[in-house]
Design a protein around this nucleic acid. Structure first.
Lengths: 206, 206, 206, 206
DNA sequence: AATGAATGAGTGTTCATTCAT
DNA sequence: CATGAATGAACACTCATTCAT
């Protein structure tokens, strides 16, 4: 009655991985465009050509893809940041490199976002890609390290990290919204603001 | 007209106003905790002890409370900001006052938020109270004005405003999360960071 | 605290009757335009300037006004029909008079209907004014009487009455829908159809 | 593509078709008994044993089933009527055949109706199955054709068609309400009434 | 009596998730 | 493993009806 088409085990694994990735990519787009709540599982699988059922073969819930996205983002951005921090000889050059890396990451990540933004759609009610969230965590860690190594003055770490991330993120978004995003100018803006700010900040007592 | 007038409109109006406010407050909390999409009308009215129907007696839709919230926030914060900007003689004193005002506003606004934050609930998927959004708009306007009056160097207005708001917001949140929020220290941090940063920023060609 | 405006008892009764009638009239319009289900109590009282509460002072439910409407219609049409049947000397003249009376009644009743019909609105999903229903019952009774008095051949009473009513109603509606309703022509059509039909009908065995 | 094909599509398609039909049947009943507005989607699916969700798997809205019902009715009755009109050599035989066909259609359609009618339920507030509406349109068309071919005298087409339909429908209903419906007698009644009536009708000037 | 805010069951519809095929 | 129909809890919103004033 029912006929099975067998694939070589290698091929099988390959398709599995491909499907997993396809779902992840689709989810990234959809969550970016619609936000977590508004996005539906069907929105996601529609872009993959798979079936609803298949989705649940790879991820146990909508929430799980969301989280997987975070892991994925972090996994891909962390090495970049670490390499930079290892190579860094002073705070300024590290910061500049990190901001650039972040903006590039952003630009690569958010091709979908640009479509929406330039289409002037009525901004969705929710945002905050899980990837970005993960990156936040990463940045904070690296920042602590940089400070430990004496490359930056000891100021309120939590506040500074939060500020840097906030500014980078905000300017990043603003940059993306402008016609013909000028990554260099935006990065320069962020770096100078932070650098100037840090030098004026009250030192923490060790 | 056959009309009996029961003249205790005071009490009636009173409860009406109270209910309207109760719904607004509850909505502020719920939207803050859950985001617009995830928040349900029932979530809101549950905190007021009213009925579903009552909600729709006061607001025509979920969207309308959301907007009312924005109006409310803007209406209450705008005058404060305007007064400050009128009184300001230099950028530093204006900025310090504005940040303080914002933090106080935040502290008043978000008693509910603290409950949630300390309860360690499983991070909500969306945030961004409409009130905050309205304040954003206001701040940007005032900033432009301050710059026009020559109280601050002419730098990329959009980027600067966005940065200030982002930093203030982020530090504000972080401050609220800490035990025994030190408003003074937080404000000082923000002011110095911005001020130091601005002085290092590239001037825009007029 | 609460102040009562007293009216003379006469006036009081007058307003009560007026309100009762106002509700009835409004209900006639609304049911005609929207149908029973789609019509809301608020639709009705909105046209009277009264309050929701007042509605329930006069009628216990939406259904009750609907029924009251039927009673009202019957009460007003019955005497007309009876007078005609008393005066009638032969079936043809009775029928002609009755159809005319019905069409006039219809025309008077349904000024509201015409508005809707001519506005080409997308026909509502339900109709059947209770008034019409009551008239149906009345007509059947009179018909039986006419037949008993030997003014019409004895045919299947139920079927004949039903047929006459159906035709009169249908042609009445169609007539109302046409530009510049020609009551005479429509009545003549109905009368001749029925009369010609009756003469061809199989007699019932007494 | 990694694809397993379970080849028992017959059963799947079978249940799907059955469900689609079940919903249609249930909708016919419910709309007939309650009218479009009063009928709820839940009323419909309750009779199928399916879930609310299933309903929306087959029809996109309550309105869509309603329309589907019309299509269905027209689709099934049109061929019958057309065949008759093609075969007809004179008006009388055509009319008789058409009335019979209509009554048979009615009888087949409305098994559910009988249950309700005999149960003496508190008369529904609205009726008019979309199927019936569709049939109306069909009949009018065929009638025009018959008249064009000279099989019937040229009288006010609109009025005649409306009358015939009204009579047939009314007598059909009445017939169904009687114990042991006598289709022959009812049809004969209608045919004679119409035929006799038509011969007495005023001719329209061509 | 008149008023209009309060109530809550009920409506159409969506969507995450399950499960027979 | 893939599929997509089935499920039902949940949602935003409506409305007949009640009741404190």
């Amino acid at each position: 009655m029912s006929q099975l088409l067998y694939l070589s085990p290698g091929k099988r694994e390959q398709t599995k991985a491909a499907n997993r990735l396809a779902i992840l990519d689709a989810a990234r787009e959809v969550f970016g465009e619609l936000g977590f709540e508004a996005a539906t599982v069907r929105d996601i699988i529609r872009r993959t050509g798979l079936s609803v059922g298949a989705f649940y073969n790879y991820y146990r819930s909508k929430e799980e893809v969301f989280d997987a996205l975070a892991d994925d983002g972090a996994r891909r951005f962390r090495p970049i940041l670490h390499a930079l921090s290892a190579r860094a000889s002073d705070f300024e050059s590290y910061l500049r490199a990190a901001v650039r890396a972040y903006f590039d990451f952003l630009a690569g990540e958010q091709e979908s976002w640009m479509v929406r933004a330039s289409a002037g759609q009525p901004l969705p009610h929710a945002r905050n890609t899980p990837e970005i969230l993960a990156v936040f965590e990463e940045v904070r860690t690296v920042f602590a390290d940089v400070m430990d190594r004496g490359l930056a003055p000891k100021v309120d770490l939590d506040y500074l990290a939060a500020s840097c991330i906030a500014v980078a993120r905000e300017i990043g978004d603003k940059m993306m919204e402008r016609e013909g995003a000028d990554v260099d100018a935006a990065a320069e803006f962020v770096v100078r603001l932070i650098l100037g700010g840090v030098s004026a900040l009250p030192r923490t007592r060790p």
